[in-house]
Design a binder for these strands. Structure first.
Length: 816
RNA sequence: GCCGGGAUGGCGGAACUGGUAGACGCACUGGAUUCAAAAUCCAGCGCUAGUAAUAGCGUGCGAGUUCGAUUCUCGCUCUCGGCACCA
């Protein structure tokens, strides 16, 4: 073999072999147990970034590891191809989004192939392909007919100059990113999916996901946000009444004002004819619609001029319009209890509203709200009750007055799926003057998105609104001229079911076929932690909807989940605007795919953010060069070195064998249970170091080295498949590493007859000793006291209070 | 603001179930090899004091539990991700 590690040549050769033998094509007729490994598909933004390399390497390591363990593995790839960036790029480059997207896909596909991923490329899908989104339109119609999709008006960010709806991302300091003018809020009709119909299922389903990170389940649980409280009515002098939802009915007697959202019906009603209120509502609209901006900003409010009647005390309390009250949660109105809620407290201080303490606490001194539990005070008949008991008592009282009831509330709200954009899946709906709103007939699907558009930025609004060829159609019911919906679907719609389509990728007549139930659920799903809530919740929701349509059998789409951390440079996210990107292409060219893969898996735990280091990659490359050299040297020794029996070698061989098998054990556990890839690599590095050190002192027999090197290559294969495949061909001719099994542990190699025990005095390390594994506990303690370095710290044996012994690990002598 | 993470040498990280803090790698320093350099190999490498043996200190900060805490509890700080139209 060549003494030099020529990675370029090797990687190209091996990849060509994989391609020629169709090595990673997955089949449903395989007798082995199935394993579906999936990485979140990329948005085709132009070229691969390090986050992709990380994501897909993790997926590939798992796929290859599972193949070695006798599974029939499916690892597919596709493109989340619709979305806003394509429109922006099209405007910038004066081209069509479809052209830009397809060129990106072509380039990124070739980059992924250079990484040596064991993907079944036959199953590639692209969401902007009509073969894909046709089924999305079909599903839309089914769900519309079932009543799971409905229409209602909802608020969007409106750019009055560009005459277009803006994404939250496009609103900067309350202004449109292109026009620079203040954004308005506009109510327009939009389609919604009733995800709230599935709220309980989605919440309870989390219980069964025992291979999901606890943090993701917690985030989803909080997002769904089930809470138990009460809905209480406050009467108004004229209009009907105001309902508020509260989780703290126990503090009702401390409510000193009501706060309503700027979008609340009463706010809007009062703004008519009141310039001050009108201006305030306008002011609130500027934040750009995102909850983060609203809640992080300064609390502002205005007195509405109206008072509400407290249901129990019958006192009049003022109603304020406040920007910190969210229209989307509860009833869009809250009873403010400044003494026991942080936000209400801050607001009361600012506007000098009364504060009334109703829960007793030593920690309450009037400088900040007390939100803990306690006994009620200043609450008339409820005084002396614990606040937990008071919750029921007060709700009962309110209920008896006909002014409220116990209520379970959810934070989760229905999913708005309409987008006033061009580059997306057309919503298959038609508007007829006579028949009204109707879905497209199934037989008329697909509604194809015209791709021959030019976007130069001079136009305003969506191009679809100016394409009569697209929007003119016949009413499916009466046949008269009608107009097609020009909104497209949220791109989350596409990414909510792609995992299923890979199984039925070439099915022309159905959305999904029987193959879906062979492969689903996905056994291992890998993707960025930024998708922990929305994408993963929508996909879980879709899976249940597909289940209700009889298309899939599994309740949950993803059995095991790994959320990878971000790739950072200089402490922040790599981004073009910051100029701190690292191009994976350059790495592949300079060091090869194996080095890039090895480094990205070694540099940090998969679930944590990874700080990029240019130096670190040198170390990974050095390791592969070293491995190459060691195997090369070993092969040369074949004819020279003999397997003779030398008694001096018994101990080193035994130790090496112990190291080998304890490494196999640790590495397997790290991959199976801990998702800890960085420690897998460092353990293998240790084993290789151990081998070279043993061989340096004593010349090890050829067969001993051969066994260890074979195992090292097998364990490294999922990480660095090219070099291990090449070296395997040299070290074990006539066999192929791709058909080899993962190494197994020989338990007898793990038995040791001696242990090193650490000795502490009062918890401080003072010495150690080697003891035979058959020694009794009393004997070990006795010996420990006699160790010279320990003796110094014990003046008198009578001082010894106790001796703690942790088996095969440690002795702590406590003196006093 | 709310929800969820994270913080350990000069750097990335390891220590899995409360039991030797710093594995593995990087950077650096010294040496070997070389005409020289690169590459490679060998040795050293938490901080402070000391020639050294060694001692003290040390896991973001402040308390607590324990024979023993990077690990558990409470209270903070900073930082990253998400907050429903970025994907």
């Amino acid at each position: 073999m060549n003494t030099e590690y020529q990675f370029k040549k090797i990687e190209a050769n091996i990849q060509a072999k994989w391609k020629a033998s169709n090595a990673f094509s997955a089949s449903e007729s395989n007798k082995l147990p199935k394993f579906y490994a999936l990485s979140m598909f990329p948005y085709p933004s132009g070229k691969l970034h390090m986050g992709h390399v990380r994501n897909y390497t993790i997926g590939d390591v798992i796929s290859r590891y599972k193949r070695m363990n006798g599974f029939n593995v499916l690892q597919p790839m596709g493109w989340d191809a619709f979305g806003l960036p394509a429109e922006n790029a099209a405007i910038k480059n004066n081209t069509a989004p479809a052209k830009w997207t397809n060129e990106n896909i072509k380039h990124m596909r070739s980059q992924l192939q250079q990484l040596g991923l064991s993907i079944d490329w036959d199953r590639e899908i692209s969401t902007c392909n009509v073969d894909y989104y046709k089924w999305e339109q079909w599903l839309f119609i089914k769900l519309y007919e079932k009543g799971l999709i409905y229409k209602k008006t909802s608020i969007v960010n409106w750019d009055p100059v560009d005459q277009t709806v803006l994404a939250n991302e496009q609103v900067i300091d309350g202004k449109g990113w292109r026009s620079g003018v203040e954004v308005e809020r506009k109510e327009i009709p939009q389609y919604f999916m009733k995800i709230t119909d599935y709220k309980d299922e989605l919440l309870e389903g989390l219980e069964d996901l025992n291979e999901w990170p606890e943090k993701v389940k917690t985030m989803q649980r909080n997002w769904i946000g089930k809470s138990t409280g009460g809905e209480i009515e406050f009467d108004l002098p004229s209009s009907p009444s105001i309902k508020v939802y509260t989780t703290r009915p126990d503090t009702l007697m401390g409510a000193t004002y009501l706060a309503i959202a700027p979008e609340h019906n009463l706010s809007i009603e009062l703004s008519n004819g009141n310039l001050e209120i009108k201006n305030f509502l306008k002011e609130c609209a500027k934040t750009g619609g995102s909850e983060a901006k609203t809640m992080a900003g300064e609390k502002k409010g205005i007195f509405s001029g109206v008072f509400a009647k407290h249901p129990i005390t019958e006192e009049n309390i003022p109603i304020w319009i406040a920007n910190y009250v969210l229209i989307n949660y509860g009833d869009g109105a809250v009873m403010a209890v400044p003494a026991h809620d942080d936000r209400d407290f801050e607001f009361s201080k600012k506007y000098e509203l009364p504060i009334k303490q109703v829960i007793k606490s030593e920690n309450y001194d009037g400088t900040k709200a007390y939100t803990g539990s306690g006994v009620l005070i200043n609450s008339n008949e409820f005084n002396g009750l614990s606040n937990e008991k008071a919750k029921n008592a007060i709700l009962k009282k309110v209920e008896s007055l006909g002014r409220g009831k116990k209520k379970i509330n959810f934070r989760l709200r229905d999913w708005g799926i309409s987008r006033q954009r061009y580059w997306g899946c057309p919503i298959p709906m038609i508007y007829c003057d006579d028949c009204g709103e109707l879905p497209v007939s199934e037989s008329d699907l697909p509604v194809t998105l015209p791709e021959d558009v030019r976007m130069d930025g001079s136009d305003v609004g969506s191009p679809l609104n100016k394409m009569p060829d697209f929007y003119s159609c016949k009413c499916p019911k009466c046949g008269k001229n009608a107009k097609r919906e020009t909104d497209t679907l949220d791109t989350f719609f596409e990414s909510s079911w792609y995992f299923a389509r890979y199984t039925s990728f070439d099915q022309k007549n159905k959305m999904l076929d029987d193959r879906a139930n062979y492969w689903l659920p996905v056994d291992y799903y890998i993707g960025g932690v930024e998708h922990a809530i929305m994408h993963l919740l929508y996909a879980r929701f879709f899976n249940r909807v597909l289940g209700d349509l009889g298309l899939v059998k599994s309740k949950e789409p993803f059995k095991k989940l790994l959320t990878q951390g971000m790739v950072l440079k200089d402490g922040t996210k790599m981004s073009k605007s910051q100029g701190n990107t690292v191009d994976p292409q350059e790495l592949i060219e300079k060091y090869g795919a194996d080095t890039a893969r090895l480094f990205i898996m070694f540099a940090a735990p998969a679930e944590q953010s990874l700080e990029w280091s240019d130096h670190g990659i040198d170390g990974a490359h050095r390791f592969l060069k070293k491995l190459w050299g060691i195997v090369d040297g070993h092969i040369e020794q074949k004819s020279v070195r003999e397997d003779g029996i030398d008694t001096n070698l018994e101990k080193p061989i035994k130790d090496l064998n112990f190291k080998l098998h304890s490494t196999i054990q640790k590495v397997t556990d790290d991959l199976e249970r801990r998702n800890s890839f960085n420690t897998v690599i460092s353990s293998i590095m240790e084993l290789l170091n151990f081998l070279t050190n043993s061989d340096k002192n004593k010349k090890l027999p050829y067969s001993t080295k051969q066994e260890v090197l074979e195992n090292i290559l097998l364990m490294l294969n999922p990480f660095v498949p090219h070099i291990t495949s090449e070296l395997w061909g040299h070290i074990k001719e006539d066999t192929n590493i791709d058909s080899m099994a993962w190494p197994t542990v020989n338990n007898s190699a793990l038995i040791q007859d001696e242990n090193k025990i650490v000795i502490q005095v009062n918890g401080k390390l003072r010495g150690n000793m080697i003891i035979s594994s058959h020694e009794t506990e009393d004997k070990i303690k006795e010996k420990a006291i006699e160790v010279e370095s320990v003796q110094k710290y014990i003046n008198n044996e009578s001082e010894i209070k106790k001796i703690i012994y942790i088996k095969e690990k440690l002795i702590n002598i406590v003196i006093g």
